[in-house]
Design a protein around this nucleic acid. Structure first.
Lengths: 177, 177
DNA sequence: GTTACTGTACCGTCCGGACGGTATTGTCAA
DNA sequence: TTGACAATACCGTCCGGACGGTACAGTAAC
């Protein structure tokens, strides 16, 4: 897992967004945090917009890779993707929330178009893989809700609640009642 | 329903955030959009932070008022709050998303603390009012998910899906199976 | 000699916020 | 009913600083 300057800049930007608020990200601050000069930063990302775009894309591709891996572990049969999605959500909790995405949103909401496309594709896959489309949809939305709570730094759930709802959702996908 | 300058400024700010991105809100732009001088704006809101705070508070109090009204319409019995919450969500769809909240988040995530408190209280009320705590929690989260999709301008659901999931959630709260 | 930077020096713009001033309205005692 | 005062609701201007972005000269490794 070698980390080039590009990756260092990206994670510095994400960490900075977390620290100073998603809308207050500046190129100077990112450069200094990444241990690179502003010239060097602009060498890799010719504009702030491009940097934020890369932040979004990186998040999406990491998410996608992790999901595919988890799905393989679940065998690929019916409901395996929903189960993998639940797994991934749990694993996510240990990671910092993707504040870079928020920074992109703050700057220009259109930067989230790839996110939108990604989620639509994911939802289609979930529905295709699930036994019950409505339940898959409900699970998708509930996880989306928990994710957004975390992303907004307004996570209000107790660990017990989180566990309970996860259990309930797992039951929803598995149980044919 | 008279609208003072204060209210005009608040809605101008929200509309602007929608147009130019939540992180690009400037006092000058808000003032000009609201048809007030910058001095006048600063008279009502002594700082940008205060303006954003007011935006958040206004959203919360409007939401709370609407919810209480809907609950009264549902009689106040068991599950009436969950039903009211579902109703309110449907009504919300006709309104523009609360972009002002995003603007606040972009500037300073701590401005969302009241949102956090509000949601926690709401969830407690929902759980207390519902027959099944887990189901109430799932409904709360699913709606939270749909709301966040809309807020991010990444709403990917078809009207049919929205309808289906709302029906499913209504069934979840009512049916004791 | 190309790639991957560093460092510095700028430019034009915009922003938040402070400030001094002003018109209008209300209050209340003399 | 008038004069004194105060609160409300603004206006217009100014400033220090930060920001995004450009330009360019240099350097060190491969």
């Amino acid at each position: 897992m070698k980390k080039g300057m590009r990756g260092k800049i990206l994670s510095a930007a994400a960490a900075l967004a977390r620290d100073i608020g998603p809308g207050n990200l500046s190129l100077d601050a990112v450069a200094s945090r990444a241990g690179v000069s502003k010239g060097g930063l602009l060498y890799h990302f010719p504009s702030k917009s491009k940097l934020l775009q890369a932040l979004v894309e990186q998040h999406l591709s990491e998410f996608d890779a992790a999901l595919n891996e988890k799905e393989k572990a679940h065998g690929g049969g019916s409901n395996s993707l929903v189960a993998a999605y639940l797994d991934l959500f749990v694993a996510e909790q240990a990671l910092p929330p993707p504040t870079g995405v928020l920074a992109a949103l703050a700057e220009n909401p259109e930067l989230l178009v790839p996110v939108s496309r990604f989620k639509r594709r994911l939802l289609d896959r979930l529905k295709a893989n699930a036994k019950d489309e409505n339940r898959a949809l409900a699970v998708f939305l509930a996880l989306e809700g928990m994710r957004s709570l975390r992303l907004f730094e307004t996570d209000i759930l107790t660990p017990a609640e989180r566990e309970a709802v996860l259990g309930f959702l797992a039951m929803l996908t598995a149980d044919p009642g």
